[in-house]
Amino acid sequence: MRMPFSPRRLLGPSIALGLAIAHPAFAHHGWSWTADETSELEGTITKIYVGNPHATLDVDVNGESWRVELAPPSQTMRAGFSEDTAKPGAHVTAIGNRSLDQNERRMKAVRIIIDGKTYDVYPNRVPSN
């Protein structure tokens, strides 16, 4: 017997609607929201989070607060960086890909350097030069 109204018919449009709304805001997950070229960011760490879904640093760059995203916690710790590795106030150089949105102060880092020590959180993405 054929149903007059299949919920599947409702599911298709709702997924399409969700994707349509979501598209401009894709951030965080993956690299689609980041610039292709890598750049450098230098500043003072104000906050350190090493945990799921991924680790982050809050960095003060000349009075502006930047969010520097690292890898998921296990991968970040494998790179040698844990929550006790550095303290707020430490100087950091972050190398990675900034947000495509110029107004958004957010970078996804592949490498961070603190006190002369280098932590490659995405080793296969570190530019070779």
Binding site: S14, G18, I21, A22, A25, F26, A27, H28, H29, P53
Partner: peptide, 14 residues
């Protein structure tokens, strides 16, 4: 509830 679903999905993207 569809709104709840979409909002939940957005949490990781903001």
């Amino acid at each position: 509830w569809l709104g709840v679903l979409v909002c939940g999905r957005f949490i990781g993207f903001l």
